[in-house]
Amino acid sequence: MATVSVIKIRDILLVAVPSDPDDFTVSELQDQVLDALQRYNAKGLILDISTVETVDSFFARTISETVKMVALMGGLTVLSGMRACVAVTTVQLGLSFDKTLTALDVDRAMDMLSAAIDSMETGL
């Protein structure tokens, strides 16, 4: 089992998803993220999958669910760093990350979340 660390940067949680996680680790990641969101009162989450080499239907379903759960808790998620080969495979497999914000890398994900959190706080 791979260990997952959740790093808090201001109002944002950053999670580097392990490169080849087993199903248990992916499910644990969901619990850990939701727990950290509540504990740190965070407003945003970045799930960085830049080292992930395989996205199959279980992984996609668990990540999509996590994004919805975070949204129910008032948080915003950005999925960052999907590799080109993974993007090709994900679409051909028929998986969709509908309604999930995505970014090329963590820097852009941080910019997106900071801007979104700022606009929420200035009263829209």
């Binding site: 395989t54 996205v55 199959d56 080969c85 993974v86 495979t89």
Partner: peptide
């Protein structure tokens, strides 16, 4: 890309 397809 093919490696990723096969592994997936």
């Amino acid at each position: 890309t093919d490696v990723t397809r096969i592994v997936t």
